[in-house]
Amino acid sequence: MQELIECKNISKTYGKKPALKNVSFSLPLRGVFALIGRNGAGKTTLIKILSTLLEPTSGTAEIGKINIVKNPAEIRKSIAVLSQEAKAVNWLTPRQQIFIYLLYRGMGINEAKMKTEEVIKTFKIGKNADIVNSRLSGGIKRKVLIAMVISTGSKILFLDEPTIGLDPIAREELWYILRRLKKTHFIFLTTHYLNEAEALADNIGIFDEGRLVQIGTLQELRKNINYQYSIYVQESRISLKSLKRYGKVVKGIDNKLQLLVDQKNADLLSKRFIQQKIRFSINPISLEDIFYYFTKKQILEESYE
């Protein structure tokens, strides 16, 4: 039987302020689960609860049949966590940082040394490995922390916004590593980069104001939305009002309107724009479109409102 990660009605309040509201889901413990949402949506709170850093106010969760609320010590043997706000310790070098973390994980000295060297090689941080972290760039320090978490060999990884501060090449390199890892690991990641979730995730969760509003594969999320296409129109002759009846307008900024439409209206509008020689582009809906749809967010300049 496939092992699962299961959340059952998890809620969390800070004082009187609710951060999570009855979050429930069940996923196989394999592949990448990406949680997307706006700042303050509750992503970090959920990751903190699942990685045993924080107790929920109510509800429970199990990872591979281990109740993480009642028995956190048991699950800690199998997980490794990169917090969103984690920083490389200033006075350590990357080699020292990775080595000490592996010791904290309970590895013997020789094994920790070996794993440290392996991960330094995998992440190509050899030339910076003996420079104190305080002298390294933010991106390299972030890379060191990711390397440190992955070097543990834990089969369940919680990565809270892991690629913040990484340059595009470093991000691609990490994606490559995560794609390889996801065949044998479960990676729970939160991200603000929707292309990252699209590129890596087997399952995606959309979080909004403490609620999990959607969960599923990208294809499943696409099916749950009434629109199949996203149209961008860059033309001052087109008014927001005239487009509203064709679909859902999600953006109106810099004379550029974006609306989500179904197959029929996509055909209709395409023909109309071609006839009227209006510049437009049409694409199948992306995760970004789905995100805007489910979080019911519109970006509209005052002139459009």
């Binding site: 990685s51 045993t52 850093l53 010590a73 800690r76 043997k77 997980i79 490794a80 966590v81 990169l82 917090s83 706000e85 984690a86 920083k87 490389a88 310790v89 200033n90 973390y101 904290y104 994980r105 309970g106 978490v149 919680f158």
Partner: peptide, 21 residues
């Protein structure tokens, strides 16, 4: 280590107990 580097978070979620730390 706890507030500026969040290292304690990484330790809490590891097999190291508070006492050993």
């Amino acid at each position: 280590l706890k507030n500026d580097f969040k290292m304690q978070d990484m330790i809490v979620s590891s097999p190291t107990s508070a006492f050993i730390y």
